[in-house]
Structures are given as C-alpha cells and as structure tokens.
C-alpha cells in the first residue's frame, strides 16, 4: 500500500545523505551478482503515538561499509562508525515514513534507533502487525527495509494515503 512512497523516501535519504543512487531498471540484472543483505547487522527504530510499530533496515555488507564511509568521508569506517551511520539512516527513513501511517496529522514519536540483537526475530515479535517490505537497489549495495505497524484506527488504515 505504501511501498512506492517508502521506497522513494529511502532512495532520497541515501542520495542526499550518502551520495548513493538507485539502480536503473536496465541495471537490475547486474544486481544478481551483488551481495545480498544477510541480517547480520540490522538497525531497528521503534515508533509510537498515532501509529505504533518498528522499522528494520538490513543492509548488505557492501552497502553498510559504503554508508559509513560516504557519510564520514573516509576509506574504511570502524564497526562502531558503521553501526552509528546505519542507525542515523534508519532514523531518517523512519522519521519520514511514519507520518504515512498516522491520520489527520496526529503525532508519532520516533524512539532512538538501535542495533538489533543477532537473534532478534522481528517477524515473530511483530507478527500481529501489518507490514511493508521494500528492497532498495543502490549503486553501492542492497537494503531490505521492513516496517511493522498499526495505527490508532486500523479500520481506516491507508484510506487517505
């Protein structure tokens, strides 16, 4: 329902913040050779208020390294820097996405992002919630983004999107 909008928000965030660009349709065949996200380092951002849920971003190893390197302007970032950079990207994407799920400009609160525990099964934890899954193919790697959500009025969910 919101897939295209969330994809656009994510692409814009990567472009403006990390100087990365989405692959064109004709480039997607080459993406088969790119490293896929494996869930080893994920950032999770909780939100509540007019809509509740969490957003999880799972970047490929290549993308994670490039996010930090591009944001910091260094060749190779430390693990701590990679995690910090990923959390900031997650914060920006989530902050811009969550208003989609809140009706009538009611307020949502974004909680500070964190790195998910290795065994944290977010699909299981948030199984009762609606979800949106987005794959973002960029020139420097791939990111999977999942948003689990429910709004204050689930019956009206998305009708004005």
């Amino acid at each position: 329902m919101y897939t295209d909008k969330i994809h656009d928000i994510a692409v814009n965030t990567f472009e403006v913040t990390c100087y990365m660009f989405p692959l064109e349709e004709w480039e997607l065949d080459d993406a088969e050779h790119m490293t896929k996200p494996d869930g080893s380092i994920r950032s999770i951002v909780k939100f509540d208020g007019a809509a509740q849920g969490s957003m999880v971003i799972d970047p490929s190893e290549d993308l994670l390294s490039s996010i930090a390197a591009n944001m910091l302007g260094v060749d190779a970032a430390t693990e701590e820097e990679k995690e910090g950079a990923l959390c900031e990207i997650a914060n920006i994407i989530c902050g811009n996405t969550v208003p989609l799920f809140a009706k009538d400009e009611r307020i949502c609160y974004i909680r500070p992002p964190r790195i998910a525990d290795p065994g944290e099964d977010t699909d299981q934890i948030f199984k009762e919630m609606a979800r949106e899954d987005i794959e973002v193919y960029l020139d420097e790697g791939i990111a999977n983004i999942t948003i689990y959500y429910s709004s204050e009025d689930d019956n009206d969910q998305g009708t004005d999107s």
Partner: peptide
C-alpha cells in the same frame, strides 16, 4: 546530537 556520526557530518 546523540549520533556521533551525525555530529561529524554536521561539522564536516
């Protein structure tokens, strides 16, 4: 900013 990376980005 609570994110050290973002503090660095702003300064840079």
């Amino acid at each position: 900013d609570d994110c050290s990376v973002m503090r660095f980005v702003v300064q840079r």
